[in-house]
């Protein structure tokens, strides 16, 4: 992302949560504007070109979804991240249908928010049309759906390959469990078990066991990241 594209609009009515967001996002290198209500969000959103707009579903004046629709109608192309306190799938789906690009349920971890913002911001970048992706000594072939490290093939089930592909595409970024469920399994809820950890654990054994260095790393309390050392 270029410098001008690290500008984010945060729409949040709770002052303390808003304060925390601004502080942490600023620390992470974002330029943050804050809107405390729906009308404020409408004027700010239309005035400036933001990389991402995060919007709370419940605002004191105008509903978050309505604000988003309005800005879309005004031709604002920035991706939206809906933050909903309701945590109900139909609300999420309604949010997405109305033009939101991702959602997050309150309370969320800041790292999760950051991961989502990174993923959303990346959308505007050109997507590479390569058929073989490489991270360190790992290579995955998107056509033959095979993976290898230092030329040695890794046997993966189709879903395991999908998971690895998602991690590779988000190389160096933190990917949360919920994001994995959403993108690899198309599930829009959290099974209240450690099933994702168990699944990633198996992929990790296949990919990292008896290799020079590990590629898949656990990010405590959030999820995983795939990166080569150095």
């Amino acid at each position: 992302m270029t410098g001008s594209h690290r500008r984010i609009l945060v729409v949040e009515d709770d002052p303390e949560t808003a304060g925390q967001l601004v502080e942490q996002l600023t620390t992470s290198g974002y330029q943050v504007d804050l809107a405390g209500c729906g009308s404020d969000a409408l004027s700010r959103g239309a005035a400036c070109d933001y990389a991402v707009i995060t919007i709370d579903r419940m605002l004191p004046d105008i509903d978050g979804i309505t604000v988003m629709r309005q800005l879309r109608d005004d031709g604002i192309a920035a991706p939206f991240l809906i933050i909903s306190a309701l945590g109900e799938v139909d609300d999420r789906v309604r949010g997405l249908r109305a033009g939101g690009d991702d959602y997050l349920v309150k309370p969320f971890s800041f790292v999760e928010l950051l991961a989502r913002l990174e993923a959303l911001g990346r959308r505007s970048e050109t997507i590479a049309k390569e058929t073989i992706l490489r991270v360190g000594d790992l290579a995955i072939d998107l056509i033959s759906r095979t993976a290898s490290r230092r030329g040695t093939g890794i046997e993966l089930l189709p879903r395991e390959f999908q998971l690895l592909e998602y991690l590779v595409r988000n190389e160096g970024r933190v990917v949360s469990r919920a994001m994995l469920l959403q993108h690899v399994w198309d599930l829009h809820f959290d099974p209240s078990t450690n099933i994702i950890d168990v699944y990633v654990g198996r992929v990790r054994r296949k990919v990292d066991d008896q290799q020079a260095y590990p590629l898949i790393h656990t990010v405590r309390g959030v999820g995983y990241t795939l990166r080569a050392p150095g």
Partner: peptide, 20 residues
């Protein structure tokens, strides 16, 4: 309950994470 508890819990989680 869900709504009223979520806001303080969000703040709480935010603070803990900041401390972490």
């Amino acid at each position: 309950l869900a709504h009223d508890l979520r806001t303080p819990l969000t703040r709480m989680r935010g603070r803990l994470e900041k401390a972490y």
